[in-house]
Design a protein around this nucleic acid. Sequence first.
DNA 1: AATGAATGAGTCTTCATTCAT
DNA 2: AATGAATGAAGACTCATTCAT
Lengths: 199, 199, 199, 199
Amino acid sequence: MNIQSQPRHIMDRREQILQATANLIAECGLQASPMSKVAKSACCGAGTIYRYFETKEDLVRELYKELTTQMNQACLQDYDRAACIKVRFYTIWGNFYRHMSSNPRDCALMEQLSASPAICCHFKDEAMEPLRQEVDQLIDEGKQQQLFKELPNETLAMFTFGSLASIAKKQHNMAEQCQPANVYETQNLLNLCWDAVKA
Amino acid sequence: MNIQSQPRHIMDRREQILQATANLIAECGLQASPMSKVAKSACCGAGTIYRYFETKEDLVRELYKELTTQMNQACLQDYDRAACIKVRFYTIWGNFYRHMSSNPRDCALMEQLSASPAICCHFKDEAMEPLRQEVDQLIDEGKQQQLFKELPNETLAMFTFGSLASIAKKQHNMAEQCQPANVYETQNLLNLCWDAVKA
Amino acid sequence: MNIQSQPRHIMDRREQILQATANLIAECGLQASPMSKVAKSACCGAGTIYRYFETKEDLVRELYKELTTQMNQACLQDYDRAACIKVRFYTIWGNFYRHMSSNPRDCALMEQLSASPAICCHFKDEAMEPLRQEVDQLIDEGKQQQLFKELPNETLAMFTFGSLASIAKKQHNMAEQCQPANVYETQNLLNLCWDAVKA
Amino acid sequence: MNIQSQPRHIMDRREQILQATANLIAECGLQASPMSKVAKSACCGAGTIYRYFETKEDLVRELYKELTTQMNQACLQDYDRAACIKVRFYTIWGNFYRHMSSNPRDCALMEQLSASPAICCHFKDEAMEPLRQEVDQLIDEGKQQQLFKELPNETLAMFTFGSLASIAKKQHNMAEQCQPANVYETQNLLNLCWDAVKA
DNA sequence: AATGAATGAGTCTTCATTCAT
DNA sequence: AATGAATGAAGACTCATTCAT
């Protein structure tokens, strides 16, 4: 029973183009990634891209969507709503940091695309919605149990998000060869976050 | 005693172009800001820009440098190396947050340019060097006094930097009309940071 | 007794494609009618078109040929060479005007294709040849009977042709909903033509 | 006292491009006249065209406008509203025929552009407005004096227009080398028209 | 020094045509 | 025979940069 409704080779083609785009933009930047190069990198004709994506803008948006979806999924892996607040906090943000840390390309890509006016704000927010909701509820419950500081949810969330993302990014810039974040290091960073937000 | 070697009106011209560039890029993005528009916005001919900046890349780099210099200066305002660690910590990062918070345009600009491969890493680091050194020393001393967690300086610095920057940015996105950060709010955010890094 | 050498369904396919092409070009113009749209409109794959027509140019030429053939046939309907000059004159040009008037799509199409350098002059002339010959002979006989002005046949023919075509076209432009030309109106127009050419 | 508000060389450039466009479209057709060829033919860079015309569509529209304006002016040359109907009729349509006859390029161009969906109907009508008004008034007066048949003005106008245009066009097609219409011939054609419309 | 017209390489995108299935 | 995915050449248009005035 195949879960995909589309034939295999179609999915491959689309994915092939998305991967080529990701590699190219991560390396050269959005403006230095013309469709002709994307095509060459994806081993297809320029026109082929337009069978899968309406415009370059659409292509970039879909790439962003895929990156975000993967990140959301990674963050919520093994996440158990029944667990205690601290475990849930460490799970989500640990997942987040490990994901960013072990995928330098996607990390750089997300930073670049997030900052780019090429993707509209509304779309960005929408893509992050699933994770945002989960984090929002976590903070709500944490506040009820008086574990967290009494600051706006958005503030606490962005604080953690921004700090971990910055560190992952910095790490990539310093060591071009990127060994995955070790357990010890990740734990320390999560402690920083926890100490920050806890009441 | 004039510190500038160039005549006054020349500086004005240069500054005029930089401001026009800043406004345009902040509003439209780097790729949607052609030199012709910059020229129009700066009320000068397109050719004139090239008397002050070698290329568009150079113009953007110089803009980034100016933004960074201003941010560095803002951060170190009233900074007293003789003061105690906590005061110094609150001074620098308070300055930083207030600067980001009250200059939405520059905040958005720095995010965009920082993420852009149009400016090379080396150049970015260089521009931040003065602030980095000061923060580095602050953390060193803090560690000596066993006030800070035993994590790499880079980590502690990026943690604070990234979290505050993210919050400022988020704030701008949410409320397009940007009232400057009030004292109370800023204090709370600095407490978050301090709690995070303190031993 | 089937006059056609090709099997029935093949003809249908070909006709289907020609009709789709006609509708599309009439509505969107030649340049805005790509083969892919023609295929979709004809409910077949793009490749299928090339089994019936060598190139797009060929397709358009064949369409023009069909339109012209139909027009020629329409003009010569009930045409009796034994009738008197005036009757024959009114028959041919009456048929012509009614045909143009009641087929706005084909009228617009012929105008567009006639004006297009995409179809060469030689081909256009050839397609009109049957009608041209008949008209030519009519004018010859009319001149013999001193009913017509002593002007070149081509001139007299084009005069009538051009004037009626222009009026039909204008009519379509003015009233987008096109009721077929009524008898009275047509009669008046033919009177104009007759008065023009008669000696 | 210079009637032109724009500097001389600007006008030249624009005119240069319009002429190149006219020649190219007349020879190759609209679809076979890419901007790159227009540029080469006008001896300028492709980008230069866009300083004078917003898009290719705009360029073609402006060309059509110029052609129509020239035709309108030609038609109304020596036209005296105080003259008698017949003289006015012969003046306008004689001018028209001589203009079409002696400018094969513009004649072919107008036919092609008139038939093209690239220029919208509204624009076409607008361009012809001055001449249309004059002809309209002429026919009104003619009818008052019971010189003309009682048919709609539009019909009488299009009849004359269409017939003369068709003949001019035909003439060009037949003799590629185009001697200007001689007096005798023109007079005969106008007689055809006059006989057609007169009561 | 200042201007802005001119340039043409480079960008995105379309589309006639082919060919593997 | 029919399909439609793939191709890549070609088109419209943009824009960093130059240079004559």
